[in-house]
Amino acid sequence: MGAVLTAEFMASVGTIHRFTSADALAAASGLAPVLTQSSGKVRHSRSVTGGNKALKRVFYQASFCSIQRDPTSRAYHDRKRAGGKRHHQALIAPARRKANVVYAMLRDRRPFQARPPLRLVA
């Protein structure tokens, strides 16, 4: 995340102890699926209008920048697109991942360390 996004994130979140888990952070930012029930029908859908809009913007913008500069994020985005997701949906998926990573970094007080890619041995 850039300096502006980091400042906006800290202003929106305050302290990470407000959230009990990474799922709670994702739900507060509007990135978690929302259960919709009506007359016996149950659907899981993403909430377009729910959550903290500033926080959602932070993760969305971070996701957008990462698919342009990070090959791992780009490959994840391309897999989602190949799976039939639209561009916006394919951007929300890595944004949710980023919410999980940021929560873990702040909870454990450790900097981000990318894992080396797995290689399949034949």
Rank of each mutant, 00 (worst) to 15 (best):
G30T: 03
L91Y: 02
R115L: 12
Y60H: 04
H44S: 08
H77P: 01
A26I: 06
R86V: 15
A75D: 08
S66N: 05
Q61G: 11
S63V: 12
R110L: 13
N52D: 07
R115A: 14
P116R: 06
K53T: 14
L106R: 01
S66C: 06
F64H: 13
A26H: 03
Q37I: 12
K53G: 12
V48N: 04
L35R: 05
L106Y: 04
Q68M: 13
A95W: 04
A22Y: 06
C65L: 14
P71D: 09
L118G: 12
V58C: 03
P111Y: 04
P117T: 09
Q89I: 09
A28W: 07
K56M: 04
A90V: 05
R79N: 12
L91Q: 03
V101L: 04
A24K: 03
K80F: 13
V42T: 14
K80E: 15
G40S: 00
Q61K: 09
Y60S: 01
D108F: 02
G51F: 00
K85Q: 06
F59C: 02
T20I: 10
S47C: 08
S38K: 03
N100H: 10
S66F: 07
P116T: 13
H44E: 07
S29K: 00
Y60C: 01
S73M: 15
P94I: 12
H77R: 05
Y103A: 00
R74E: 11
D70L: 05
A95K: 03
A99T: 12
A90D: 01
H44K: 09
L35E: 08
A82L: 11
L55W: 00
G30P: 05
Y76T: 15
H87F: 13
D78R: 12
R107M: 08
R74H: 13
P116D: 08
Q113C: 14
T72W: 07
S66R: 05
S63P: 11
L118N: 12
S39K: 10
S38G: 03
A99L: 05
L31G: 04
K41N: 07
L31Y: 06
N100S: 07
R97L: 14
A32G: 02
K85T: 11
F59H: 01
S63A: 13
K53N: 10
Q89N: 10
A22H: 08
F112Y: 09
V34T: 08
R86F: 09
I67H: 06
K98P: 11
T36V: 07
V48L: 02
H88E: 10
L55I: 04
L31R: 02
R107G: 04
P117S: 06
Q68A: 14
C65F: 10
P71W: 09
R96Y: 09
L118Y: 14
L118I: 15
Q113L: 14
